[in-house]
């Protein structure tokens, strides 16, 4: 199992800050700035960070809703074993086949279904555009998918419009649509954040169950560490376009190394009033990464910043053992001095 399902190399997305008409832009927001990670088959990676950290942009690049400015997204190809294919180089005539393997679940269940199309039309759309099956076969497949996502009996739902469904039911439809092509990789962008608390767990459980049944890997994008913990095998923490820490979920939450991860973790409200936590205060608020300087991205807010942070470039992700990678000069120096 050394062959990853997906490998991201130096992935970067720059958005020009528009500067008037017909002028070449000189300022760029570094939304995603040279990130690297791998996802193994059947594994779920949580991408965690605050709004504007580039997590959604990353997700959109992985499903080719957005072109990368530079860097590569490499995917294993089931037909040619062992080879990783750069999704940027997929010829147009093979794009449809790529689409079968990679799907996405969106955040807003109220906006992710076309209000003028029925559940059947929505869920069968991937089959229709991929020319899979006859109408009858599609109907059977859609019914089966609805049953799998807990919308039973399917006949009661097939010809409803989105406005006749609750938020939770819509998200179930969205999951059915994402899995109907039997993909191997699904990007889930905050799929439960707009749902009521009492619905969330059943949707998350459903996604976990289907991940097993369909042998699918998720890139689970969320701002909520508690949700990431429930859903993911590994977690990557993003800050202003950079991954600052990545590793096994329990390792990251139990033994956070990067100051930002520590601050994030200490800020998560805990549903237990008797829980006393370590307060980690960080400075200021989040800024935008417009033409960021080369040193550590977190430097302005880091309460522990030292000279080495100011004089050197943004630290690379370094292995701290057991696949726990951290991008911080201080963590390294702590280790070497110890």
């Amino acid at each position: 199992m050394s062959q990853p399902l997906l490998k991201v190399e130096n992935l970067t997305k720059l958005f020009p800050v528009s500067k008037g008409f017909l002028r070449t832009p000189t300022d760029f927001i570094h939304a995603v700035d040279g990130i690297n990670f791998e996802i193994q088959p059947g594994e779920s990676l949580g991408l965690v960070g605050e709004s504007g950290c580039g997590k959604s942009t990353t997700g959109r690049m992985l499903v080719k809703l957005m072109e990368a400015s530079s860097g590569h997204v490499l995917m294993s190809d089931k037909t040619h074993t062992d080879d990783l294919i750069d999704i940027a180089n997929i010829p147009n005539d093979q794009m449809k086949r790529f689409r079968r393997r990679v799907q996405m679940i969106f955040q807003d269940p109220y906006e992710s279904m076309n209000p003028r199309r029925t559940v059947f039309e929505t869920v069968s759309e991937p089959l229709t555009v991929q020319n899979i099956g006859s109408l009858k076969e599609r109907e059977e497949r859609v019914s089966e998918m609805l049953r799998l996502v807990g919308l039973a009996p399917p006949d009661a739902f097939l010809f409803r419009y989105p406005h006749e469904l609750s938020g939770g039911q819509r998200q179930r439809v969205a999951i059915a649509r994402a899995l109907v092509l039997d993909p191997s990789f699904v990007v889930a962008d905050e799929p439960t954040s707009m749902l009521d608390v009492s619905i969330r767990i059943s949707i998350m459980d459903l996604m976990l169950k289907l991940a097993d049944e369909f042998d699918v890997s998720y890139l689970y994008i969320t701002h909520d560490l508690a949700v990431a913990r429930y859903m993911c095998d590994r977690i990557a923490v993003m800050y202003l376009g950079k991954i600052v820490e990545i590793g096994d979920t329990e390792e990251i939450l139990g033994n956070p190394q990067h100051p930002y991860t520590k601050a994030l973790l200490s800020a998560v409200p805990v549903p237990d009033p008797s829980f006393k936590r370590e307060e980690v205060e960080i400075l200021g608020g989040i800024t935008k990464a417009i033409n960021p300087p080369s040193e550590c991205r977190f430097i302005e807010r880091c309460p522990w910043a030292k000279d080495v942070c100011r004089t050197s470039d943004h630290p690379p992700l370094e292995d701290k053992g057991d696949g726990h990678y951290v991008a911080c000069h201080l963590v390294e120096s702590a280790l070497t001095s110890a």
């Binding site: 794009m95 449809k96 689409r99 996405m104 969106f106 906006e111 992710s112 076309n114 929505t122 991929q130």
Partner: peptide
């Protein structure tokens, strides 16, 4: 810019579709 348009694109829908 609605997600359902993105969803259709991810499903492989052509621009015309």
């Amino acid at each position: 810019v609605k997600p359902f348009v993105d969803a259709a694109r991810v499903a492989g829908g052509s621009n015309a579709r």
